[in-house]
Design a protein around this nucleic acid. Structure first.
Lengths: 126, 126
DNA sequence: ACGCTAATAATAACTTATTATCAATAAGCA
DNA sequence: TGCTTATTGATAATAAGTTATTATTAGCGT
């Protein structure tokens, strides 16, 4: 990146302010609220650049396209709402002692994904 | 399914005897050891049928095509070797008390994926 | 404000996994 | 064994996500 463009600024601030990982479509929609002409090609291109520069990281869930979130958020895991499909961060760490692998296997990292209903989607009564 | 074919028998026994989730390519290769003419189309078709009949289940990892394993294995999670790319079963359960979600979020299920080196790929010395 | 050229917008092209098509093959009953 | 037709094998078609192309737009140094 050699020039600061409105598109790039919009995309980074959209992700920074989301508070949860965003899909490319979510980035496109939120970004178009700032720069109406924003195109999906620019979203993909900019997400790739921002990731290469270390600002954002891809969040990978099984069977789904990458979402992105700020790198500075550090280690955590994710919760996906089975109703609204939004993904949320959970800033807890598992105690390593709770992770078990077969003898002689070396664990380098893990991904924990919870599925359920977020606060917006849990029926308030009943 | 209305006929028992050598292809179908081969595919099911290959998965049953693998002891770990197999990709479609792994099923094809192992199946061709039994029925040399086995084609990838038959592998996909049969895997879908076997899953619909409840014999096998898809194992989904982020960014990767489905693998399959026997349904009878029950609840467990997976370990993927970052060296040989094989996926292994881990038959342990996390204590539910170790799973935390934000207030008002309801956890329905979870997926834990470990990444690292399997016993075959860990350097024996050093 | 001007000019150079990086970045964008629109869309075509591509990728990888999976599914559909259809002539040839083979399961299993008479 | 022969017949009927479900299943297979080979490959074309499809699908969804992502990347490439290119004329146009706009950042930014002068």
């Amino acid at each position: 990146m050699e020039r600061n463009t409105r598109q790039r600024d919009a995309i980074l601030s959209v992700i920074s302010e989301a508070g949860r990982p965003l899909s490319t479509q979510e980035v496109l929609l939120a970004g178009q609220a700032v720069v109406p002409s924003l195109s999906i090609a620019t979203v993909y291109r900019t997400l790739k650049d921002l990731a290469a520069e270390g600002w954002i990281l891809p969040v990978k869930l099984p069977g789904e396209a990458d979402r992105y979130e700020m790198t500075r958020l550090g280690d955590h895991y994710h919760f996906k709402c089975s109703s609204c499909s939004k993904v949320f961060d959970i800033h807890e760490k598992l105690k390593k002692t709770t992770l078990l692998a077969p003898r002689n296997f070396v664990i380098e990292k893990y991904d924990l994904i919870l599925y359920g209903r977020c606060n917006e989607c849990v029926p308030k009564h009943k």
